[in-house]
Simulated assay, not measured.
Amino acid sequence: MGATLLVSVLGPVISALMPANVRHGLETITADQTPTAGQLLDALILVAPILILGLAVQCVMAAAVYRLIFRHDDTRFGYLRLGVDELRLMGLTLICFGLAMVLVVALTMASAIVVALASIGGPAMEGFVGGVAWLFSVGILVFVLVRLSLAPVATFAERRLAIFESWTLTRGQFWRLLGAYTLALACIVVIGLLIIVVFFGIAGVIVLMSGGQVADISSFISTDGSSLRGYLSIGVIAYMVVSSVFSALYNAVIAAPGAVAYQQLLGHPPGQPLAAQPEAG
């Protein structure tokens, strides 16, 4: 939790000290209006350092969970570090992101062609086929993501880039893995809702006792983000502490199912051969 708290503290510092052009790039990416391809590319170039930093933080947190499960004796720095294992996870993430984008583009083009052909049969047929094509595309994307979901775990455990080993390990295990991931996400949602209810309940009591109104609760944790001084309030600091607790729980709950599934499907400790099977008498 200390690491996630540090990240929560660094976030406002980075936000306050962020150059104007980088801030503009973030606004372009998060704007409601879809940017053009050129604008998106320029924005991504501007915010690349922040994206890389965020990717590094996520990989460090995931590697800490994997290290706890696979190398529990390696307790240096509380399982947290930035080394070769984390760099491999970062590289794997970028590769998988590229593959996912290729898959999304391919599915989008295929769906567009099918819908265009279906439009010959009229608007009703076009709408029906469009809905089916969308569901089919989502199903294919989810299927591929689940089948490749153990790639980060395998990469860490085997100390090498292991992109497609997950496809072999997860053969016939799609529904079990999907259920495990769904349950993990459901747990995170429940925990998040409980934390939100408790935190805003306490914040509401504090605001009302200080003479404020219910509408003032949002301002209790809000800041303009333009300077560090705006973050030095009880509400914002408390929110950062609560966020760090939730982030620690999130990283553990999200990363652990894949690591446990990998260990069980592998059938033996990572890096060790399968135990010799007794010969049939």
Rank of each mutant, 00 (worst) to 15 (best):
W175I: 11
L208G: 00
F174T: 13
L208P: 00
T182N: 07
A184L: 08
R176G: 15
I191V: 15
F199G: 03
I202Y: 04
V189K: 08
A186Q: 05
G211L: 05
L194P: 01
Y181E: 06
Y181P: 00
I191Y: 07
I202L: 14
Q213P: 01
I195K: 01
V197D: 03
E165V: 13
V205S: 12
S166C: 13
G212F: 02
V205W: 12
Q173K: 15
V198Q: 07
V189P: 00
V207Y: 00
L193F: 10
V198S: 06
V190R: 07
L183C: 10
G212P: 00
V205C: 08
G201I: 04
S166I: 08
F199D: 03
L177Y: 02
S166G: 15
V207I: 04
F200M: 08
G204R: 06
L177Q: 05
A180R: 12
L169T: 03
F174D: 07
I191C: 10
G212Q: 02
L169K: 05
L183H: 06
L183K: 12
A186W: 05
V198G: 05
V207H: 01
G172Q: 10
A203W: 01
F199V: 06
V189T: 12
E165A: 12
V197L: 11
W167H: 13
I206T: 04
L169S: 07
Q213A: 15
I188K: 03
S210N: 13
R176L: 13
I191W: 05
I206F: 08
W175K: 11
F199R: 06
W175Y: 13
Y181C: 04
A184V: 05
I191P: 01
Q213G: 15
G204D: 05
L185E: 10
Q173E: 15
F174H: 14
L193Y: 04
S210H: 09
C187T: 06
I206V: 14
V207C: 01
L183E: 06
Q213M: 13
I195E: 02
I195N: 00
L183R: 11
V189W: 07
G179D: 09
R171W: 12
F200C: 04
F199M: 12
S166V: 09
M209Q: 13
E165H: 12
R171M: 12
W167Y: 14
I195W: 01
V189N: 07
L208F: 08
I202C: 08
L178Y: 13
L193S: 08
F174S: 11
I195Q: 01
T170Y: 04
L177W: 03
V190I: 15
L194F: 11
Q173W: 07
A184S: 15
I191T: 10
V189Y: 09
I191D: 02
L169D: 02
I196R: 12
I202D: 04
R176A: 13
I188Q: 07
M209W: 09
I191A: 15
L208M: 12
G201P: 02
S210G: 08
T182F: 14
V190L: 15
